[in-house]
Design a protein around this nucleic acid. Structure first.
Ligand SMILES: NC(=O)c1ccc[n+]([C@@H]2O[C@H](COP(=O)([O-])OP(=O)(O)OC[C@H]3O[C@@H](n4cnc5c(N)ncnc54)[C@H](O)[C@@H]3O)[C@@H](O)[C@H]2O)c1
Ligand SMILES: NC(=O)c1ccc[n+]([C@@H]2O[C@H](COP(=O)([O-])OP(=O)(O)OC[C@H]3O[C@@H](n4cnc5c(N)ncnc54)[C@H](O)[C@@H]3O)[C@@H](O)[C@H]2O)c1
Lengths: 246, 246
DNA sequence: ACGGGTTTGTGAAGCCGTGCACAAATCGCG
DNA sequence: CGCGATTTGTGCACGGCTTCACAAACCCGT
């Protein structure tokens, strides 16, 4: 509620953004979902949105939306809702998306090609700034307006393109070594597609995406549904968004 | 601890598996990670593993491992640890991976091709049993030993291939319609790569994978580290697996 | 047989997240 | 200007998850 909970030397630019004392991790992981929903709502022409409507669009409960947004300083108006444009700008500020972030893709194979050719990152605040591989046959290949560089040049590439995030799409055997080289080059955020645990120093963040794990979690519920549980297969009632897991 | 907490008509086959009263969702989402770690450990020749070692391999705390495994009926031996082979078989049982599960891939585009060509699912309990698209130009295309079929034939395909899980890799605009058709065809588990919220009836599970959201969460921490927080950038101490988020 | 070392399984405590329920605030309208 | 309708912001209670700490159980060498 307070507009300036802590003294800041001054608003950097654009919207007024109080530096938040501390944001619950659960809230952080939902902010991107709100942002995605808000962009849809904005494109539909709405200029304000209630917590109820935003909750429906994001697939959560409205109380959760209100509590999450209240953590950001709360620019909602009672009886009306939130200004969509303001909310978008504020969430983008908090997530650090006001400046476009450059990511490097390490391992331009099967999956790497798909990601490199994907045009959907631009509107979400990211640009693929480098394609990196170790295979001499791959180095030099051109994809769009990027050329695959060799991993030995990683430090120079990271510096030149101001890489903020490294995405690992190499085989498991190479993943740890690649992570080490990314860290050595100064990268402190890693998105890892290789199905393995990475060891990194303190101060470096890793997020893992393992599709087989997602399938296995689904398999568990499928399995559970099949056995004895009469509730699972029976009920086909309302068409509410029922999402399992995080 | 009890071997048969509830009466079952009889052990189906293989290992003795008590039907578990109820498994915490947080535990379920970690079992696949343990399984992945256990396969690595098994391949390294170890036949028993302590909760400490397994925890290290999976990137969690040992107490968590013990509590999770105790939920499954606890086949560990004090002073020794867990039998790797037994544990693998037991977790696979619980996750419903003793029978290979067939998945259908809907949307054989950029990302769909990458997934279809990925050979890593077989060892994790899954087989891609169908490739489905709506584009007549894509229908009939051959990838490996599969041929892309038309989405109008989805009910027949699901029945013929015993599809248990649908994977949506279509553009956002088509995702909801595809989900509806999957549900109509009898599929009750969906892995959704399209960045949107799906509405499904009760009894159907949806898991979403949105790469941009993962990047945005990383961006938040990166942003936070950059501003004021002197702890983040400073500390580069031990090489412990520090994974942010779920 | 027995004691020392090791590791499991779990009670208990604390923390975090969720959702309810309601007072406070704002708007529109008569 | 006042009133009813609407929606936010939040105190509070509850449940789930995590972590600690330790007794019980087990192996092995002597
Ligand atoms: N393809 C998929 O759909 C898919 C799905 C789930 C997970 N994955 C995981 O993603 C990763 C990549 O899968 P893929 O199918 O693209 O494999 P791939 O073999 O097609 O591509 C791997 C690429 O990494 C490069 N590489 C190898 N070692 C390297 C190193 N040290 N430094 C830089 N580059 C190196 C290779 O030259 C190759 O171009 C794997 O870990 C895989 O398990 C892939
Ligand atoms: N490619 C990536 O790396 C990437 C990354 C993140 C997210 N995604 C998401 O994954 C989805 C697919 O991305 P893509 O790059 O593969 O897109 P794409 O356009 O290359 O492929 C989409 C495919 O879906 C098919 N399709 C369209 N409507 C359909 C329908 N009603 N029924 C069946 N098939 C239909 C199209 O014919 C096409 O083959 C998108 O939602 C995208 O946002 C992709």
């Amino acid at each position: 509620m307070s507009q300036f909970p802590r003294g800041s030397t001054g608003p950097p630019d654009g919207v007024v953004v109080p530096d938040l004392p501390e944001l619950p991790e659960a809230t952080v992981s939902r902010l991107p979902e709100y942002l995605r929903a808000l962009h849809q709502i904005a494109q539909a022409g709405q200029d304000t949105v209630s917590s109820e409507a935003l909750a429906a669009a994001a697939g959560v409960k409205s109380a959760k939306v209100r509590k999450d947004l209240s953590q950001l300083g709360s620019y909602g108006t009672r009886g009306v809702g939130y200004e969509v444009a303001v909310l978008i700008e504020q969430i983008e500020q908090v997530l650090g998306l006001t400046q476009r972030r450059n990511v490097a893709l390490i391992g331009v194979g099967n999956l790497g090609h798909a990601l490199a050719g994907y045009g959907g990152f631009g509107s979400r605040g990211f640009r693929i700034g480098a394609l990196v591989d170790a295979d001499p046959a791959r180095v030099g290949e051109r994809l769009g307006d990027l050329v695959v560089t060799h991993i030995d040049e990683l430090p120079a590439t990271v510096a030149a393109e101001q890489i903020a995030i490294g995405v690992i799409t190499t085989p498991v055997v190479a993943a740890q070594a690649v992570a080490d080289r990314l860290v050595a080059a100064g990268v402190t955020s890693i998105l890892n597609f290789a199905p393995c645990v990475l060891s990194v120093p303190d101060g470096v963040d890793v997020r893992n995406v393992d599709l087989a794990i997602e399938l296995q979690i689904l398999s568990f519920h499928e399995h559970r549904r099949g056995r004895g549980d009469p509730d699972g297969a029976a009920a086909v009632r309302r068409a509410a968004p029922k999402v399992v897991g995080p």
